[in-house]
Amino acid sequence: MVGAVLTQNTAWTNVERALARLTGRIALTAEAILALDEADLADALRPSGYFNIKARRLRSFCEGFLAGGGLPGLAALDTAPLRRHLLAIPGVGPETADDMLLYAFARPVFVVDAYTRRVFTRLRLLRGDEGYETIRTAFETALGADVPLFNAYHALIVRHGKEVCRKHPRCDTCCLRGGCPAADEQDHALLTNARSRP
C-alpha cells in the first residue's frame, strides 16, 4: 500500500529505492511512519520524486489506514465501502485505491493506468477521453470478477506499455501489430516518408 502511494508519477525502480531508504530507517508500519519526523520521511522518500508531497500523502494514508482499524478492520469491509474509505483519504485517487484493492486486499477491481489508456487507445478499443470509472467498469464487465486474471492482465499491460507500446512505440516488435490500427498508421507514415526521399 505504501508503494501504491509512492508510485504516483514515478517509475517503480524509484519507488524501490525510496522503500529501501525508508526501511533502512524504520519498520514499514503505519505507526512508525507517523512517528517519523515529516522532514526525515520526505528525505527517505527523495528517490520517488515529489518527496515532500508524497510524505504528506503517505502520512494521510497512514492516518486513514489506522482510523479504519488497520489491515484487519479494512479487510473486513466489503469492496465498495473499502474503496470509498480509501478514496476519502487525501492523496488517494482511483488508480491508487484500486491498486491497493487489487494487490493488497485481493479484491476484483481492475486498475486503470496510463499504460492501459495508451495501449487500448492505439488498438482503438478506447477513444482516449473516457473517464476512469468508465474504463474500469468496461474491463471488469468484459473479464468478470477474477482477481488472478486482473493481476496477470494488468501486469501484462504494464509490461507491454513499458517495453513495446511506449510513448514512441516499437511497433516492429509488437505482438499485437497485426490487429493494431496505430501500427498500420505508423507503417503507412514510414512508407510515405521513404517514398518522398530522393
Rank of each mutant, 00 (worst) to 15 (best):
Ala4Gln: 02
Ala4Asn: 08
Thr7Ile: 13
Gln8Gly: 05
Ala11Pro: 07
Ala11Ile: 02
Trp12His: 05
Arg17Glu: 13
Arg21Phe: 01
Leu22Gly: 02
Gly24Leu: 10
Arg25Met: 11
Leu34Lys: 04
Ala35Ile: 08
Ala35Phe: 08
Asp37Gly: 07
Ala44Asp: 09
Leu45Thr: 05
Lys54Ser: 06
Ala55Phe: 03
Arg59Gln: 03
Arg59Gly: 01
Ser60Ile: 00
Gly64Asp: 03
Leu66Ala: 11
Leu74Val: 09
Asp78Ile: 06
Thr79Arg: 15
Pro81Ala: 08
Arg83Val: 11
Arg83Ser: 11
Leu86Thr: 08
Leu87Pro: 09
Ala88Gly: 15
Ala88Ser: 15
Ile89Met: 06
Asp99Ile: 04
Met100Asn: 08
Ala104Asn: 15
Ala104His: 13
Val109Tyr: 09
Arg117Gln: 11
Phe120Met: 00
Leu123Val: 05
Arg127Gly: 13
Tyr132Leu: 07
Thr134Gln: 15
Glu140Lys: 05
Glu140Arg: 07
Ala142Gln: 11
Leu143Ser: 05
Ala152Glu: 14
Tyr153Phe: 15
His154Cys: 07
Val158Gly: 05
Arg159Ser: 14
Arg159Ile: 01
His160Asn: 01
Glu163Leu: 06
Glu163His: 09
Lys167Ala: 10
Arg170Leu: 05
Leu176Phe: 00
Ala182Val: 00
Gln186Ser: 07
Gln186Lys: 01
Leu190Pro: 01
Leu191Asn: 12
Thr192Ala: 12
Asn193Ser: 14
Arg195Asp: 12
